[in-house]
Design a protein around this nucleic acid. Structure first.
Length: 596
RNA sequence: GGGCUCGUGGUGCAGCCUGGUUAGCACACUGGACUGUCAAUCCAGAGGUCGCGGGUUCAAGUCCCGUCGAGCCCGCCA
């Protein structure tokens, strides 16, 4: 019953025809979106990626075409030939771009049939994500999802055009490379030619892009897949895409200006939005103090306050001891939230604990005074506390006493939880923000050693170089993150381009001379052969596109994403391989059984 | 590694708390009717290992334990 295209050529897409086309004979191709069979007349909405066109089959006009249309079912692939006609008065459909016209079909070819679908091809149908992923090729037929990929394409094109226009070269770097210490868990690939040895898939092209700068390429970029074997989230996939950029001979501010131009170009081209450059900047210390986050959403207020001084030697022992030990007391005033129930208050305490706080003090400001489990201890500082926060009757005040940065981070997360729950987050608009002056190192209590906050190749600020001897905790880095609406969309730094400083940083990170030589020898060598000053950034493309598309999850902007367990329900990857394949690679699989 | 939520015809859900008729509804699907619909309408029909395994009970979709899968979160993600 199905047939080929023959000599037919598609003349128009299904989203193209307008009233002005009335009278032309056209050939459309696409999928049978919906069929309305009136016994005599059959209406058939033909869909391609551009839209819908109503085709009318009239037995009086063409009995053959009408006969074939009777057999058409959902998602059959069709070619329709006929004359464009203005729709009769009263039958125009304002919901369709093509709603002023219809095609009076004279010929119909059924190019392929389709089984009954597991779910309808419609926007806003709620289908279990597992089923969507099993039939992803059907899921992707939904117009809203197609739009996400058109948007993703437009973002990539804007990035490429902008960077090419500024002298950048797109260069590919290896996927099969070597495992490096620090950072995320590596995906490993066994080597057949060197049994027992493994490649690692890159967590990012970090080292290679620096080597391209040593090579004198000056301006490099790549839209490139990166791999990290960590647990998944709605904004984290094991393979994801970065816009990776590196430049030579640019200081931090010149580089940031260049990046701002690119981001502005993207927003202009995909959304027609003009953003003002330079973007606002906040130091890491300020962001932490004011918002309790290194990626604050500045579209709403709810800033934190520091009330440490009020609790020094205070009656409230829990806080007094924290202050004594060098900790801080941070406060968050939530205007008009004083009406929360006991359960809501308890939930806040539970959340605060899960975020790492030892506890959370909540205070309702009522006409009768303070309502709180610890109200009587707070009474002595009540006037000072209310004044410091500008709090009044009806407000809720949250207090966390702890070491920095814990106290601020806990309140920062409660701040964003509460803003969301109370509907304070604007749904439109873009708040772009640079966070700068990150610390070079953070202390890992678990490993009892310093860790690089950004990565081990990040340069310290010139004025902080001396701090590397003895006071590394105070050294700040030439690192920067770009934050969009409270999400980190990019991060980078000016790199160390002098071997001696790189060696010193490795030392502080507990990477000994021999280990550094063994794992990064090629980089250390390169730094001795005339490395230019360099710096760069990497954007999380998936996150950026998800935000621009208004999607919660990056899975909505990745064509074939993985589930939270890292599997693909369609291909059923990962899957076991044959013993022969393993033998060839010199690999045996351990039986880890129940209790590994 | 841990916490929470979910799993019932193809899809989305109800039934579970308080065990006991033939597991119900909507959409999709199949057949029929219908010449202006656009979520077409009307009539009829088919379709279920209630994720899987075990237990309690006279009796389990329902209660208990385990397990698998999905989602969200904590840890993790330089």
């Amino acid at each position: 019953m199905t047939e080929g295209l023959g000599s037919w050529k598609r003349t128009h897409t299904c989203g193209a025809l307008r009233a002005a086309d009335a009278g032309t004979t056209v050939t459309l191709m696409g999928w049978a979106h919906r069929r309305r069979d009136h016994g005599g007349l059959i209406f058939l909405d033909l869909r391609d990626r551009t839209g819908l066109t109503q085709c009318v089959f009239n037995p009086a006009a063409s009995a053959a075409a009408h006969g074939r249309a009777e057999a058409v079912r959902g998602e059959f692939v069709l070619a329709v030939r006929g004359a464009v006609a203005r729709r009769p008065d009263g039958t125009l459909n304002p919901k369709l771009a093509t709603g002023e016209i219809e095609v009076h079909a004279s010929e119909l070819r059924i190019l392929n049939e389709a089984r009954a679908l597991p779910f309808p091809i419609e926007d806003e149908v709620e289908v279990d994500e597992l089923v969507r992923l099993q039939y992803r090729y059907l899921d992707l037929r939904r117009p809203s999802l197609y739009r996400n990929f058109a948007l993703r394409d437009a973002v990539c094109r804007a990035v490429r055009d902008h960077l090419h226009g500024h002298g950048f070269l797109e260069v590919e770097t290896p996927f099969l490379t070597r495992s490096t210490p620090e950072g995320a868990r590596d995906f490993l690939v066994p080597s057949r030619l060197s049994p027992g040895s493994f490649y690692a898939l890159p967590q990012s092209p970090q080292l290679f892009k620096q080597l391209l700068m040593v090579a004198g390429f000056e301006r490099y970029f790549q839209i490139v897949r990166c791999f990290r074997d960590e647990d998944l989230r709605k904004d984290r996939q094991p393979e994801f895409t970065q816009i990776d950029i590196e430049t030579s001979f640019l200081g931090r501010d010149d580089f940031l200006a260049l990046v701002e131009g690119m981001v502005a170009e993207v927003l202009r081209r995909v959304h027609g939005v003009e953003v003002a450059a330079p973007f606002p900047r906040l130091t890491y210390g300020e962001a932490l103090a004011r918002y309790g986050s290194d990626k604050p959403d500045t579209r709403y207020g709810l800033e934190l306050a520091d009330v440490t001084a009020l609790f020094r030697g205070a009656a409230f022992q829990a806080f007094a001891r924290v202050v004594e030990a060098g900790g801080v007391v941070k406060a968050l005033r939530v205007p008009g939230a004083g009406g929360l129930s006991r359960k809501e208050a308890d939930d806040l305490v539970t959340a605060a604990r899960s975020y790492g706080a030892k506890g959370l003090v909540w205070v309702k400001v009522t006409p009768e005074g303070l309502a709180s489990p610890v109200a009587k201890f707070l009474e002595p500082v009540r006037p000072a506390l209310l004044e410091a926060l500008g709090a009044g009757v009806g407000d809720l005040v949250l207090l966390v006493g702890d070491a920095m940065p814990t106290a601020a981070l806990v309140l920062g997360r409660l701040r964003s939880d509460l803003a969301q729950r109370r509907g304070l987050v604007p749904t439109a608009g873009y708040a772009l923000l640079w966070i700068v002056d990150f610390p070079m190192f953070e202390w890992s209590e678990a490993e009892r050693r310093w860790q690089a906050m950004h990565h081990p190749f990040t340069a310290p600020r010139d004025e902080d170089l001396p701090l590397l001897e003895g006071r590394p905790a105070e050294a700040l880095a030439k690192a920067y993150d770009l934050v969009l609406n409270g999400q980190e969309i990019g991060g980078g730094s000016i790199r160390i381009h002098q071997q001696a400083i790189q060696q010193k940083v490795f030392e502080l990170l507990g990477i000994g001379k021999d280990e550094a030589r063994a794992k990064f020898g090629f980089l250390l060598d390169a730094l001795e052969f005339g490395a230019p000053p360099m710096g760069g950034i990497a954007f999380g493309l998936d996150r950026l596109v998800a935000i621009l598309a208004g999607e919660e999850s990056i899975r909505e902007v990745i064509a074939f994403p993985k589930t939270q367990k890292g599997s693909d329900p369609m291909t059923e990857a990962p899957a076991p391989v044959s013993p022969a394949q393993l033998r060839e690679l010199g690999i045996g699989v351990l039986d880890l059984g129940k209790d590994r």
